[in-house]
């Protein structure tokens, strides 16, 4: 997590209710206005849907693999605006990975949950989720994916898949992998796992394919079946000798992953 954000969260967390509210008001007052070129883009596609107050977030790539974070929130909702300003102050100039891995516990550690109350905190989780999703769309500078390392695999990679001369000719087509996953549906929602936004990543290593996917809720009873279906569908794709599907719960799935925009994030990495 960014050091600056960590410091701000700690300062808020150590304050009493009154001081914490004053700090949030100060942060809210100091939130920089949106640049003119973004001011006109305060539309539904940039709004955090879970938040009852209109909150707009913009994450852009900047030099040396850092991000610029811009945000707007109404002055009439100073706690929300202050929290958004805290994120901007703490994360503008951070790396995409720092933002993509932003932990939910900052709401507890900063004491913001305590002043807002259980029932009104959901919009702020929505802000954190949207921010992580936006950052995850950006090119990750330290990109090598770590997932195959801890993916259990019964078979060691075959000789063919590590031989670039033969692998190049018949490695699976990424489009074909996505098409195969489109045949796997969530039995409760009757929508395929791609359009639901459950697939977080697809990586091929020669003839082996590694997929990271999540479920709509950690307790989804259809999980094991969907994973078996996904493995079976992937292994039917030309050029695939072995498919590994790893279940991940972080970041948690949310309905906004189902939109067209969210589908673009899925990409092959």
């Amino acid at each position: 997590m960014s050091t600056r954000l960590d410091e701000l969260v700690q300062e808020l967390g150590q304050a009493d209710r009154q001081e914490r509210i004053e700090l949030l008001i100060d942060l809210a007052r100091e939130l920089p206005p949106l640049p003119d070129r973004l001011a006109g883009s305060r539309d539904e596609s940039h709004r955090v849907p879970e938040c009852q107050s209109p909150v707009f977030l913009f994450v852009e790539p900047a030099e040396s693999g850092r991000i610029r974070l811009y945000a707007d929130a109404p002055a009439e909702a100073p706690t929300v605006r202050g929290f958004v300003a805290l994120l901007v102050a703490g994360l503008d100039g951070a790396t995409p990975a720092e933002v993509a891995n932003l932990p939910d516990d900052i709401l507890d550690r900063s004491g913001v949950r305590e002043i807002l109350g259980m029932q009104r905190i959901s919009g702020l989780y929505g802000i954190l989720r949207r921010l992580r999703a936006l950052a995850a769309q950006l090119p990750q500078p330290e990109s090598p994916a770590k997932m195959p390392a801890d993916t259990p695999s019964a078979d060691p990679p075959s000789a063919a898949s590590s031989d670039p001369s033969t692998a190049a000719a018949s490695t699976p087509d990424p489009e074909a992998l996505i098409a195969a996953l489109r045949t796997v549906t969530d039995p409760e929602l009757h929508v395929n796992v791609i359009d639901l936004g459950l697939v977080y990543g697809i990586q091929t290593q020669g003839h082996e394919v590694h997929v990271e996917m999540t479920l709509t809720s950690p307790a989804c009873p259809a999980g094991p079946q969907m994973i078996r279906d996904a493995v079976a569908a992937l292994e039917k794709v030309e050029g695939v000798t072995k498919a590994h599907v790893k279940l991940v719960m972080n970041p948690p799935w949310s309905p906004d992953r189902m939109t067209d925009a969210a589908r673009d994030e899925l990409g092959i990495f």
Binding site: L24, I25, A77, T79, I115
Partner: peptide, 9 residues
């Protein structure tokens, strides 16, 4: 208020 900071603002 819904927003506990609004009064103090």
């Amino acid at each position: 208020d819904e927003d506990p900071a609004l009064y103090f603002q």
